[in-house]
Simulated assay, not measured.
Amino acid sequence: MTYEEFIAKVSERAGMSREQAEVISRAVLETLAERISGGEADDLASLVPEPLRPSLQRSVRKPALSFGLSAFVDRARVRAGDPGWFTLDAVRAVLMTLRDAVGDKEFRDALAQLPQEFEEILRVTA
Rank of each mutant, 00 (worst) to 15 (best):
E50R: 00
M1V: 13
Y3L: 06
E12V: 01
S55N: 02
A14W: 06
D100F: 12
V10E: 10
Y3D: 09
D82W: 08
E34I: 11
V91N: 03
A45V: 07
S70Q: 09
V10A: 04
V48W: 13
G39V: 13
L52D: 09
E40S: 15
Q57S: 12
Q20S: 09
F107L: 00
E12H: 05
S11Y: 13
M1D: 03
A71T: 08
G68P: 02
P51N: 09
T97H: 05
S17C: 10
E106C: 08
V48C: 08
R26Y: 11
W85T: 07
E120G: 04
S55Q: 06
F118A: 07
E4Y: 12
R61T: 13
L69P: 00
V48F: 13
V78D: 03
G38S: 07
S17M: 14
V48D: 05
D100K: 14
R77G: 00
A126E: 14
D89K: 09
A41N: 01
W85S: 14
V124P: 00
L122A: 13
D109F: 03
L47K: 12
F118G: 01
G81D: 03
K105E: 14
G38L: 06
S46P: 00
V73A: 12
S25K: 03
F72D: 01
M16H: 00
E117Q: 04
L114G: 03
A41G: 07
S25H: 06
L65D: 13
P54H: 02
T87G: 00
G15L: 04
K9T: 11
F118N: 03
R13K: 13
T97I: 02
L44D: 04
Q57G: 01
L65R: 15
D82C: 11
D82A: 15
I24S: 07
V102L: 08
D89R: 11
A8N: 12
L88Y: 00
A8I: 04
I24E: 01
R79Y: 06
R123Y: 08
A21F: 11
P49Y: 04
I24D: 00
S55A: 15
R79S: 06
R108E: 05
A110Q: 05
R53F: 00
A27W: 12
A90C: 14
A110G: 08
R53N: 01
I7M: 08
A21N: 13
R53E: 05
A76W: 07
R77C: 00
S25M: 02
W85Y: 15
S55I: 08
L47M: 15
V124N: 04
I36K: 05
V73Q: 04
A27R: 09
A8V: 04
S37C: 02
V94G: 05
R58W: 02
E106H: 14
A112V: 03
I36C: 01
V73G: 09
V60P: 02
R18K: 15
T97R: 02
Q116F: 12
V60L: 11
